[in-house]
Amino acid sequence: MKKNLEITDEDRKIAAFAALAIVIHVLESGFPSPVPGVKPGLANIITLLVLFRYGWRYAAWVSLLRVTAGSLLLGTFMSPTFLLSLSGALASLLTMLLLWTVMRHWVGLVGVSVLSSISHVMAQLFVAWWLFIPHPGILVLTPILITAGILFGLFNAIIASSIEKRLTNPKHNSI
């Protein structure tokens, strides 16, 4: 028996954006970081753009595909790194869902980016404490991670909004 898998336009879009996000994810993992866990999370720019252009369902697909495929490429699938990455992605997707359904008309890129970044960091901290390092000492990382999360959330929102501008208004393309 043969089943025909229909590839929809939606599938193509998700695959294309996920591919972009995966490339950013893999490139970023090559950069060293002064504090373990602190990194800009540039791949989230793609998730943000997809959320604002196509809605939450698309964003969830892109984000989860990125985490899964990215970990397969980096060889961290099912490792602690992967679990932390996944928990962060799930938490920020939940935050996006909440913001998207409840107050879509009152928030823009900045709000969504910063708040989802905070929830990303908090979820990772909780999972790290729960599964890997059940020691109160890990709480010392909280302020560092929250501060970095907020700053990078803002940074990503600025980049995302400048990309968004170029996407909607071709005039901006010639910098």
Binding site: L99, M103, H105, W106, V107, G108, L109, V110, G111, V114, L115, I118, L139, V140, T142, P143, I146, T147, I150, G153, L154, A157, I158, S161
Partner: peptide
């Protein structure tokens, strides 16, 4: 410049408040 909606300002203010709070709490 980035377009900021009311919710963005609220979240930004909240996070500006969160930074010093998180530092003092763990201290």
């Amino acid at each position: 410049m980035i377009k900021m909606k009311i919710g963005d300002w609220v979240i930004l203010l909240f996070s500006l408040f969160l930074i010093p709070m998180s530092w003092s709490m763990t201290k």
